[in-house]
Simulated assay, not measured.
Amino acid sequence: MKLVTTPRTEFLRGIATEILHNYGRGRAIVAVDGTEESGRAAFADDLAAVFEERDHPVFRASMRYFQRSRVEQAKFGPETAERDYRHRDDYSALDRVLVGPFRLGGSTGFVTREFDPERDAWIQPTWLTAPPDAILVIDGDFILRPELLGRWSYTVLLDGGAETPADELYRAEVRPSRLASAVIDDTDASHPQRRFFDSC
């Protein structure tokens, strides 16, 4: 379906063109990082819509649905920014039911949501399949941390938005702007702008 042309849509089309130029064949995973206040989920939704506009198969997921239960998180100590950053998300589950199966291709099924953090309960799995050429767009906190980078084909960092203490810890330790394929200022959501950094 043709999207209404706006400066935001045109910007996202440019990002999608870049991704499809490099990863248009086979399975690719695009990861969108940034604080919750940065509009990360909406940006990921809108980027996925641009792929849909081009009739390129696309799937959406979010790290918020791959968290550990409250009981599991409590095993790592009291609730702190450190615990939130290091132990909230379940990367083993992410690999087992989403990233691994999606990358395998073929008819292997994958799940885009495993755990509901609001209800603190497991979600009845809905197994999906994808064609040989497909993109998965996933958003989440701390998604550019070094131990996750090998999973993603292309990465976006939304710069800006209020930070939690866990966000501050992440930024100080990882400096994600150095790792992202594209750093984007989405403060004015109607006119996102790409940021470039002098490597010298």
Score class of each variant (00 low, 15 high):
residue 76 F to D: 03
residue 99 V to L: 05
residue 101 P to G: 11
residue 80 T to R: 06
residue 81 A to H: 10
residue 85 Y to N: 03
residue 81 A to N: 03
residue 91 Y to C: 01
residue 75 K to N: 12
residue 79 E to H: 13
residue 86 R to L: 15
residue 93 A to P: 00
residue 98 L to R: 07
residue 95 D to E: 15
residue 88 R to A: 15
residue 102 F to I: 01
residue 89 D to P: 00
residue 103 R to E: 02
residue 102 F to Q: 08
residue 87 H to Y: 14
residue 83 R to G: 02
residue 80 T to G: 11
residue 80 T to L: 10
residue 87 H to N: 12
residue 78 P to A: 12
residue 103 R to P: 01
residue 94 L to S: 00
residue 88 R to S: 14
residue 81 A to K: 02
residue 93 A to Y: 06
residue 102 F to P: 02
residue 76 F to H: 08
residue 78 P to H: 04
residue 76 F to R: 03
residue 74 A to L: 08
residue 93 A to M: 14
residue 99 V to P: 02
residue 83 R to N: 09
residue 85 Y to P: 08
residue 101 P to S: 11
residue 100 G to T: 01
residue 78 P to K: 11
residue 74 A to K: 09
residue 79 E to T: 11
residue 73 Q to W: 03
residue 92 S to A: 14
residue 72 E to Y: 09
residue 84 D to C: 01
residue 85 Y to M: 10
residue 77 G to D: 06
residue 93 A to N: 07
residue 103 R to F: 06
residue 102 F to C: 00
residue 96 R to K: 13
residue 80 T to Q: 07
residue 102 F to K: 05
residue 73 Q to I: 13
residue 82 E to S: 12
residue 77 G to I: 06
residue 88 R to M: 13
residue 93 A to S: 12
residue 77 G to E: 05
residue 80 T to W: 10
residue 80 T to A: 09
residue 91 Y to T: 08
residue 89 D to K: 02
residue 74 A to F: 03
residue 88 R to P: 06
residue 73 Q to Y: 04
residue 83 R to Q: 01
residue 89 D to V: 06
residue 100 G to P: 05
residue 90 D to E: 00
residue 72 E to T: 12
residue 90 D to G: 00
residue 89 D to Y: 15
residue 73 Q to L: 11
residue 98 L to E: 05
residue 102 F to G: 04
residue 85 Y to G: 09
residue 84 D to G: 02
residue 82 E to G: 01
residue 83 R to F: 00
residue 76 F to Q: 02
residue 87 H to W: 10
residue 93 A to G: 07
residue 85 Y to R: 10
residue 74 A to P: 01
residue 92 S to H: 11
residue 85 Y to T: 06
residue 72 E to M: 09
residue 80 T to N: 08
residue 85 Y to C: 07
residue 77 G to L: 07
residue 73 Q to G: 05
residue 89 D to F: 15
residue 103 R to L: 13
residue 79 E to D: 15
